[in-house]
């Protein structure tokens, strides 16, 4: 199971690489609990997920993952300051409404935050826009009219938001087709994972 998860979600391996054994983790929008299960099996984390969908709640429970049914944008207010080593938001940032306040909540509840998102500045996305259409790809599989994504951004945009919110980026891992991207990441990377904390 572990290998298949890592193949289908390359950002999971990148996230796991940053998480020491035995950490406490809050996964916002945790889906069916795959990441938390993977982190429990490989990192022995103590974790909780927040999820809104009924099907995912039942799936998390089947995966033996702690899950709290709530809207992640309002539900995170229930968590106490610095109550987790890591708060993770994987491939969900672009679908959040109050993205700015959510970023602040992540660094309030977590000693560190980890966020992964599709890079809208990826050259294939730029190309599709240049040719006259909204991008549709593996990372952005929706049409413009049915997409849940309301706050898409590029790596540069995200880093600008962090600076604006006085959030310090600790590390960045950019990938395309499962491979690391070092050179010109904002153009050549399709997915990015960031690790950050409150700049205090």
């Amino acid at each position: 199971m572990n290998t298949s998860i890592i193949q289908s979600r390359p950002d999971f391996a990148a996230i796991a690489a940053w998480i020491p054994q035995g950490s406490s983790v809050l996964d916002l929008g945790c889906g069916d609990g795959s990441l938390l299960r993977y982190l429990r099996e490989t990192r022995e984390v103590r974790g909780y997920g927040v999820e809104i969908s009924d099907a995912n709640i039942a799936a998390c429970i089947a995966n033996n993952v702690n899950v709290i049914q709530n809207d992640l944008e309002s539900g995170i207010a229930d968590f106490e300051d610095a109550s987790f080593d890591f708060v993770i938001l994987s491939q969900t940032l672009q679908a959040t409404r109050n993205t700015e306040s959510l970023m602040q909540e992540i660094v309030r509840v977590g000693r560190e935050g980890i966020v992964s998102f599709p890079n809208f500045g990826y050259w294939k996305n730029r190309l599709q826009v240049m040719l006259g259409n909204m991008p549709v790809s593996d990372e952005l599989p929706y049409q413009w009219y049915d997409t849940p994504n309301v706050h898409l951004c590029t790596l540069d945009d995200f880093e600008f938001l962090c600076a604006h919110l006085e959030i310090r980026i600790l590390a960045r891992h950019v990938m395309a087709n499962g491979n690391d991207v070092i050179v010109m990441p904002n153009l050549r990377g399709s997915t990015a994972v960031y690790r950050f904390r409150r700049d205090a």
């Binding site: 039942a58 993952v65 702690n66 709290i68 968590f79 106490e80």
Partner: peptide
């Protein structure tokens, strides 16, 4: 959660 106990919640 405050006491770091295992808990799941379904509404």
């Amino acid at each position: 959660l405050h006491n770091k106990r295992d808990v799941s919640y379904a509404e």
